[in-house]
Design a protein around this nucleic acid. Structure first.
Lengths: 193, 193
DNA sequence: TGCTTATTTGAATGATCATTCAAGAACTAT
DNA sequence: ATAGTTCTTGAATGATCATTCAAATAAGCA
């Protein structure tokens, strides 16, 4: 026996940012070698494929986003306060210099999903999980009477997700100023109205 | 002298859909040869490059979207009626079977813009033109007292664009049902509120 | 009709890429 | 310590790709 030397999470996060920066297709194995510090053979030994590395990176991305999500929505504050903090976080992300590192899921969905049934299925599943989590948050807000039940949690969650997707794309062309912040604030109001 | 035999617009529209279907990077010259009917040499003679063909296709896309836009916002009906028709059109586009053929501009922005300063500049310019046109529409609606001047046209245009971006991405994972239509309706209300 | 100029054709080129593989290195267990 | 297993290394492989080029073709002009 012999234990693998590399830190799996570190490697996957390096691959993640490579895929987000250059896209899956334009990230060559040489790029991945440089980013992860792993030689081609090791990558193939550990992940079978460049595609396998993408799948593993997607899984890691999901996990990272999950812990971030449950960290913010810990239930220690009113739901709407937590939701506002969540949106603030996304705004900061959009305003950071690396706008292109928006969301590996949507980026991969745009790039490879149309050609790869399995990848699309996985990404769709992850996004559906995210949507479910957001729906639960909004349902909590309704249960706590923080927002009305005029529109149900599902409809509100759909709208919020649409808004977040849109924010990220919009940020690509408007990284400057506080336009993003204003948009996020109106989005918050319209979701909670 | 000798006149080029091919129909430039037809060729560019074929290239457009190829780029939208597979992405710029994964569209090979063989794909483009099949799609456009032009042999490699002719493509290089007419557009200098694969990249040149992309630039030309982006230009054609802009023109096509422009005529579509001015066709809908002809000023013959109340502005808000025209705006609703415009959104209905986008909804139909999102619900059509080829969801991936969403918008060449945003697709290219995601894929190549981070690597190619010039392409990003051109796409950003086109999108800015679009935003300007939408702002003008909303300003007209304000001038005609169809909506209040509580929020100015710029802010409303930003929000509408964010919503449209988001709708398109959302449609990738929810092509079915009339979720998209509901979202578009709330977006319309929130922009005009 | 012939001459010039431009386009079309499609095989050839050279680069880049993902992937493989055989040899070397390191860890565990006996 | 030694055998056995697994990981690492990095050059080799074969495929694919954008691009080039020289020959062939056609259109405008004299």
């Amino acid at each position: 026996m012999r234990i693998a030397e590399f830190d799996r999470e570190k490697v996957l996060r390096s691959a993640m940012t490579s895929f987000m920066d250059k896209g899956y297709g334009k990230t060559s194995m040489q790029d991945l070698k440089r980013a992860t510090g792993l030689h081609p053979g090791s990558i193939y030994c550990a992940f079978e494929n460049k595609r396998g590395l993408l799948l593993a990176a997607l899984g890691q991305y999901r996990e990272d986003r999950n812990t971030e999500f449950t960290g913010i929505f810990s239930g220690q504050r009113p739901v709407l306060v937590e939701l506002k903090a969540y949106l603030d976080n996304i705004v900061l992300e959009c305003q950071s210099c690396d706008v292109s590192r928006s969301c590996l899921l949507t980026k991969a969905l745009n790039e490879v999903a149309e050609q790869d049934e399995e990848v699309r299925g996985i990404i769709t599943l992850y996004l559906a999980n995210w949507q479910q989590a957001i729906t639960q948050v909004l349902q909590n807000a309704i249960d706590q009477k923080e927002i009305t039940s005029d529109r149900n949690a599902d409809v509100r969650a759909h709208y919020l997700m649409m808004g977040i997707y849109g924010l990220r794309t919009f940020a690509h062309t408007h990284p400057e100023g506080n336009t993003i912040k204003q948009l996020a604030e109106q989005l918050y109001e319209d979701v909670c109205r």
